[in-house]
Simulated assay, not measured.
Amino acid sequence: MVNIIDNQENTNPDDFYASLKEKLEATHDFPEDYLFKFIITNDESKHTEIYRVFDEVKFTLNTKESKNGKYSSISINAFVMDADQVIKIYKEVGKISGVMML
């Protein structure tokens, strides 16, 4: 799994995703199951937005609410074909406000 929150504020997104693709291809044997992890406010509509990104993908889902109930962690183990599909999913989820990608 790749940590997307690595203080990428000053990084060009194209450079970041090119680097991510290299790392994914070097460390994974696609096609395979890939674990996506997200932290989001405990808002059911935000959860639904994330799930919609995975509509065309076979996946299993695990959610856990934070101790105070304000946040949820979402773990999605999805069968992906290649690094490009992983990046596409991260980009789509990245459009959802308030999501932290791990």
Rank of each mutant, 00 (worst) to 15 (best):
V53D: 06
G94A: 12
M1R: 08
Y34T: 01
T11Y: 04
K67G: 11
I50S: 00
L24T: 11
F79K: 14
I40W: 03
K95F: 01
I4N: 04
N68R: 12
N10P: 00
F59N: 02
I89Q: 12
G98W: 09
N62H: 13
I40C: 07
N3F: 13
E9T: 13
V57R: 10
E56C: 08
M1G: 14
A83N: 06
K21Y: 06
F36Q: 04
F54D: 14
Q85S: 10
M100S: 07
N10E: 12
V86C: 07
T27W: 00
F59C: 02
H28N: 15
T48H: 06
M101W: 03
K21E: 08
N12Q: 08
F36C: 01
V57Q: 08
V80W: 05
I76Q: 08
I50E: 01
K58I: 11
M1Q: 09
T27Q: 14
I87F: 02
L35E: 11
E32Y: 02
N10R: 12
K58R: 14
S72Y: 03
L61C: 08
N62Q: 13
I50H: 07
A83L: 06
P31K: 03
L102G: 09
K88E: 14
P31Y: 03
T63K: 13
S45I: 05
V53P: 03
Y17N: 07
S66I: 10
V57C: 06
H28Y: 14
D82P: 06
P13I: 05
H28E: 15
I39H: 05
P31D: 01
D82H: 02
T60G: 08
K64S: 14
N7P: 01
N77T: 04
H47Q: 06
Y90V: 00
K37M: 07
K58C: 01
Y17P: 07
T11M: 08
F16L: 15
D29P: 00
L35N: 07
Q8G: 06
A78L: 00
N12H: 10
V80P: 02
F16I: 07
L20V: 15
F30S: 10
E22P: 02
Y34I: 01
S72R: 14
D6I: 09
A83M: 06
S19R: 15
I40A: 12
I74T: 14
M81C: 00
K67P: 00
V99L: 01
D29F: 04
F36W: 07
F79M: 10
V53A: 10
G94E: 12
E25I: 09
L102M: 13
E9H: 12
I50W: 05
Q8H: 04
